[in-house]
């Protein structure tokens, strides 16, 4: 009885894992690729290179790269503050960092519209000096940063916690300047974690829909991003074209994940 359970339990686990991978990850991907291929390779190529589609994809990738850059700086700073500083109300700050994970991104978009939209005091003042935030790329960058920052913070935090401040002190007593310490002692051990956070942020930014839908304005060839473009195509009944653009978003996102997973950490053996 117990012997057969010992055999069956791992099989059941493996089986569930297989079903999960197939049903929720592999099959939908195959389905979307199959749908994209229905119009032939030429049709798919035409679907993603038409000006509105190409612009939407380019905008998604460009904004995502910019957002990743901002995330790395502010994510590292936030993680540093959480780990190394004695902040009053640290637990609250800690919870706030995760807030974007808990709030629907649509709501995040609405928050920004309310705060910075043309009707708001702050947004109005900015508009008066010629800076459009909402329905323009600055607002889109803000929203994407809001959504993706926690990935970098949470990736870096545990590694930072493990770093012994004595390593920096050791470098100091050996004559290293502060800039050299940051470059050669602090950043290298954080690099793999930063890469993981960056990859996750990038993939998330590419896929972001809710916040983009409410605050980008969705003007084709101006502020329309890839994910929202896909919805437009679906609503227009162009499911093949929607699938083709989806596949591009998907592939780039997977490539980003693969690249960061290749950043290895030769010293982490124990």
């Amino acid at each position: 009885m117990s012997a057969s359970r010992a055999v069956w339990a791992p099989r059941l686990m493996r089986g569930s894992f297989g079903v999960w991978i197939c049903a929720l990850v592999a099959l939908p991907m195959i389905a979307v690729i199959a749908r994209a291929a229905e119009g032939g390779l030429g049709g798919a190529w035409e679907a993603i290179t038409r000006p509105a589609a190409a612009h939407a994809l380019g905008l998604s990738f460009g904004l995502s790269l910019l957002v990743v850059g901002i995330d790395l700086v502010f994510g590292l700073a936030t993680a540093w503050a959480l780990v190394r500083w004695e902040i009053p109300g640290r637990r609250l700050v800690n919870a706030l960092v995760d807030l974007p994970f808990a709030v629907p991104t649509l709501v995040a978009g609405i928050l920004l519209v309310v705060m910075l939209g043309p009707q708001s005091t702050l947004g109005g003042a900015l508009a008066d000096v010629g800076v459009d935030v909402i329905y323009a790329w600055p607002g889109m960058v803000l929203a994407l940063c809001f959504v993706t920052l926690p990935f970098v913070v949470r990736a870096v935090e545990p590694v930072l916690e493990e770093l012994d401040p004595a390593e920096e002190e050791a470098a100091r007593t050996l004559g290293a300047s502060e800039a050299l310490i940051v470059r050669q002692v602090l950043l290298p051990p954080l690099f793999p974690a930063l890469a993981v956070g960056a990859g996750q942020s990038f993939a998330r930014a590419i896929g972001e829909f809710g916040a983009m839908a409410v605050l980008s304005g969705n003007v084709p060839r101006e502020t329309l991003v890839g994910s929202v473009y896909v919805l437009g195509e679906v609503e227009a009944g162009d499911s093949v074209e929607a699938a083709a653009v989806s596949v591009v978003l998907l592939v780039v996102s997977i490539i980003a994940q693969l690249v960061v997973s290749r950043v290895n950490q030769p010293w982490g053996r124990s």
């Binding site: 012994d164 100091r172 290298p188």
Partner: peptide, 20 residues
């Protein structure tokens, strides 16, 4: 500062640079 004093220092928990 510590960087300019030229003294050797050894820490209890080694403080080796783990990535080197």
């Amino acid at each position: 500062d510590a960087a300019s004093r030229g003294v050797g220092f050894v820490f209890q928990h080694y403080a080796l640079f783990r990535h080197m």
